[in-house]
Design a protein around this nucleic acid. Sequence first.
DNA 1: CAATATTTGTGAACTATTTCACAAGCTCTC
DNA 2: GAGAGCTTGTGAAATAGTTCACAAATATTG
Lengths: 214, 214
Amino acid sequence: MANGARKVSDPAARRLSLYLRALEAMAAEGRVTVSSGDLARECGINAAQLRKDLSAFGSFGKRGLGYPVAELVPRLKEILGLTRTWRVALVGAGRIGQALFEFPAFRGRGFHILAIVDADPAKVGTHWGDIEIEADDDLETVIARESIDLVVLAVPAAVARGLARRSVGAGARGILNFAPIRLDLPDDVPVNHVNMGLELEALAFALGGAPTDA
Amino acid sequence: MANGARKVSDPAARRLSLYLRALEAMAAEGRVTVSSGDLARECGINAAQLRKDLSAFGSFGKRGLGYPVAELVPRLKEILGLTRTWRVALVGAGRIGQALFEFPAFRGRGFHILAIVDADPAKVGTHWGDIEIEADDDLETVIARESIDLVVLAVPAAVARGLARRSVGAGARGILNFAPIRLDLPDDVPVNHVNMGLELEALAFALGGAPTDA
DNA sequence: CAATATTTGTGAACTATTTCACAAGCTCTC
DNA sequence: GAGAGCTTGTGAAATAGTTCACAAATATTG
């Protein structure tokens, strides 16, 4: 919501990431052009929708031929904001943070983890790669010092709200939240959720959780 | 989609998990009743929608009073299919699998991890808790032996599709997929995705990725 | 016990998103 | 270079999901 000129819906924005990934794979295989039909099939999406999603940002395809893979990749990156560097802080140095930290595509997309904080005194002072883990008491200092854009919040639900609020207060502009709780921050701070428990429960439900009637 | 008698949309099913979590927190604090307004506010959702979501499964509230917290919790668990045990296999013994494995709420919700497979020969034969990591060559055997319901797929995109297909062939009924790729399995196999990269990119986009015009 | 204040459950209105369907435009072949 | 064959971009239709608004039901108070 922070971007006033935004034209596309939230689900549409997510699909753009999907297209980008598929296109990158195609580019790696040396494919030159791709039709909306082929790309849509690859992404599990309706072709008309794909065309509509892309056309919200311009006219990238050629009729009769399709979309030029090599040109579309950087164009999508630009649209998604992946041509700049995003300064990221990890709040909570648990397994999830570690997984993200070690995930190579992360850096490749311009997301640079510049700071890590944790509540556990035993972790504070230790290093992940070049980065020293700092105390979460110092959260505000760390975020200001590193000019953090994005906070990855991977802490227990009980403390998530407080840390989120402090992060935003100190200058963080967006939050990726792994805690299974609503953060309710100001409306101009985008928050995206990753909730494995919820996805798993949704799966259980899909497999027959719902009784016929109550 | 496996459940024929299903009455609610996919987003609605996800919201049920949200309600459950909030209600459990309230129950823990000893709260007896809650109005749709209060619960909806806690979950960041419209009150009418909450009432509609619940009413799809029955009439749980009392007019003038609200919903009985202690009764609604087990009712929601039943609806979501959390009163039974789900037999889970972890395919890919990396950080993500580890995070799930150590997450206590996991077991508490009836999701029991009974097997772990990995492609790395160095990991095969080692133990996580009581469970010995097995070779992914033996995937079919493992799934059949343990009567696995759900597979948590946390492997590189390049091999995800193949392992998913094999899992389903061997009897898995649903998949929680962490790989950033569409699995395209038969329609009767529900697949839920957890894609941290995509969420992060959506966040970047929300913060100003989109240019005003193409 | 009657009057007032709440709160649910739900049809109807509204909004958002997806899909259809086709004219317009490009490529390729002969 | 003209015709055949694709494929895009997009208005219109269809579908899905959300919110409104209010009658019906219950609790509470004096």
